[in-house]
């Protein structure tokens, strides 16, 4: 009960605020059919959601979801490999770290048009945008997780004559895994944001969720626009929950922060 009540209270506040906003905005409802133009009230969210619109949302969901999934998987791999490489060598760290930060702080809306220009408006380009926005927290957390392994544990492996690979696989990666999972949790949200924000720039082919939101906005179809945004949120939430579930399965039994 204690776990359910607080979020329900927040949900009630959000819905109340939503209704207040919908009915307080000037010219929010069309004078003819009374359809919402900017913010639909929650109970009218699905008005105007006909079959063709639903089909468009489903195909856009598939495009954004697959870009986010593939991008997240690659970002995880790239992030862990970069983190391990930097943890193993100060030279690699000092060579790469400033550039990784530079990529991280450069707005993705600056990079996306360049990527599209170079790679083309392909699925690969969508994935690349997602990877660029999502890999950094994984790389940084892998690096700091590996560096945080205590000296006595390293000493144990030194006394046992462990190779670098043994040390990495049996000590450093498991010890860093709670930190890596924290990075994955952030990256999972960023991957979805990357897939959707990057999509604004993909003007050819079947639109993803980002471009579909733009279409519905331009057509003043606020109901479908909000539903599309809701789908994007659900995908983000699903990513987050999958990572949280994996963490609970793999890390929580033994990890006490």
């Amino acid at each position: 009960m204690k776990r359910i009540v607080p979020p329900m209270v927040v949900l009630t506040v959000i819905l109340g605020g939503w209704y207040a906003l919908a009915y307080s905005l000037d010219n929010n409802f069309a004078s003819g059919d009374g359809s919402a133009l900017i913010v639909p009230p929650p109970h009218r969210l699905f008005v105007g959601l006909n079959d063709p619109t639903l089909d468009r949302i489903v195909s856009a969901t598939w495009i954004s979801l697959s870009a986010a999934l593939v991008g997240f998987a690659i970002a995880t791999l790239v992030g862990i490999v970069l983190g391990v490489a930097m943890a193993f060598s100060r030279a690699i760290e000092s060579a790469l770290w400033p550039w990784l930060i530079a990529v991280q702080v450069t707005p993705i809306i600056v990079l996306t048009p360049i990527i599209i220009r170079v790679v083309g408006g392909t699925f690969g380009a969508r994935v690349m945008v997602t990877v660029l926005i999502a890999f950094f927290p994984v790389a940084a957390n892998t690096l700091f997780g590996i560096r945080s392994v205590s000296t006595p544990l390293h000493d144990l492996f030194t006394l046992a004559g462990a190779t670098r690979l043994t040390r990495l696989v049996r000590l450093q990666l498991p010890a860093a895994s709670p930190t890596i999972f924290a990075g994955l949790r952030i990256a999972s949200g960023l991957a979805v944001i990357g897939a959707i924000v990057g999509d604004f720039f993909f003007t050819r082919g079947t639109p993803g969720l980002g471009r579909l939101i733009t279409f519905f906005f331009q057509d003043t179809r606020s109901g479908p626009m909000f539903v599309t945004a809701l789908v994007a949120s659900v995908i983000g939430l699903a990513f987050f929950l999958v990572i949280a579930g994996l963490r609970r399965l793999l890390i929580s039994p033994w990890h006490r922060p």
Partner: peptide, 12 residues
């Protein structure tokens, strides 16, 4: 063999 001031166990 080495026993440290702390147990230094592998938590996982």
């Amino acid at each position: 063999g080495y026993v440290f001031q702390e147990p230094a166990l592998l938590a996982w």
